[in-house]
Design a protein around this nucleic acid. Sequence first.
DNA 1: GCAAAAATCGCACATTGATGTGATTTTTCG
DNA 2: CGAAAAATCACATCAATGTGCGATTTTTGC
Lengths: 213, 213
Amino acid sequence: MENKIKIVHYEDNNHLREGMVFLMNATPNLDLVGSFRDCMQLENQIKTLKPDVVLMDIDMPGRNGIEAVKILKEIAPQTQVLMLTVFEDEDKIFATIRNGASGYLLKNTSPTEIIEAIFDIYNGGSPMTASIARKVLSFFQQQNKLTKTDYKLSERENDILKGLVKGYSYKLIADELFISIDTVRTHIRHVYDKLQVNSKSEAILKALREGLV
Amino acid sequence: MENKIKIVHYEDNNHLREGMVFLMNATPNLDLVGSFRDCMQLENQIKTLKPDVVLMDIDMPGRNGIEAVKILKEIAPQTQVLMLTVFEDEDKIFATIRNGASGYLLKNTSPTEIIEAIFDIYNGGSPMTASIARKVLSFFQQQNKLTKTDYKLSERENDILKGLVKGYSYKLIADELFISIDTVRTHIRHVYDKLQVNSKSEAILKALREGLV
DNA sequence: GCAAAAATCGCACATTGATGTGATTTTTCG
DNA sequence: CGAAAAATCACATCAATGTGCGATTTTTGC
């Protein structure tokens, strides 16, 4: 092979870190150029070591992996980030993905698979633990299911709801629709009844989340 | 093992279909209960055969795999669908995912991996070819690049904004954060200043649209 | 240590929003 | 046609929100 894949590794647990060092060194074509217990010096390290792939833990002292991914992708967008963590909650998963991570493995992943994943991510893939992948796909599927709930808003009530979602005040909505503010109030009452909410904010949120407008 | 995984397979190419039949039959714990060249009788077949996993091609005569997934998930939501196709364009990928597919493999995937993927999807995972996975993740990452205006909210201001996006009133936010309602007001002022808005609704909308929370 | 930023709280006042209780006029549809 | 649904408007009243003008206390960064 032409070149070894240059790797930097962040992990605060000494055991795990040493294990990974051993694993990397034992694998041909992988070149572990740095292994650190926190991300405090991330900027310098990345600029100096110029890794192709970064393995990143989420829970680290000082600066967590989620922020770290964001910073890293800003200074070195071409570097691929593979998260390697115990967290399986959606917030953290989506946060890291949004921040630019290209892969996400749980820590119980076997060494063989971790090595495979490194090559995979280096070659433009996105290795993910099965359960993580499912969560990601579910995100897309949610939209569809919710569209089902039909609150049977009348046409005018829909106009009013659209106004709310534009961030308009009652007065603005009234002006836009050429009706009195009291009429707007009445419609809004009905909208609230049908959506089962009792404030503007809740109505807006429900409308947005369920794609009612 | 307790039970074999019941599989139904849709594929219009005779060669490929026969190959899969052979592969399935040669694998213990897999039970291929149906293999068809099109989806025209999908409803009957699914209701009769009650498969755990369906392997689905996209390009088939009569009714294509994308529509088929949708119909299938409506009549048998618990059945897992694994797409097995040559198409790699985003439209088709996202369409099938939105319609409820839980896995997506390209046809050049090795027999071993296909078998693995079947067990994987049956156990709640979402097997995806590396390049497909990357496309899916990119979807999330796009949002960020477009709207990365940083309003420099302080940590506390962010807490308050999160409260608003939950649809909470000032009082609720105050209770949640153990601070007085007047403090909430002050923070909200600052948030409004920084976001350049002047109502709760506008703040919520801006926060949601630009992914600030 | 010290200045700046952030977080906390208070009060007053005007505006906006939520809700109760009416009413009249159109529109829709069997 | 005639009832039901939808759309329109009017007050009234209290609660929630927005904003002006303060203040003190922590935290943070150099």
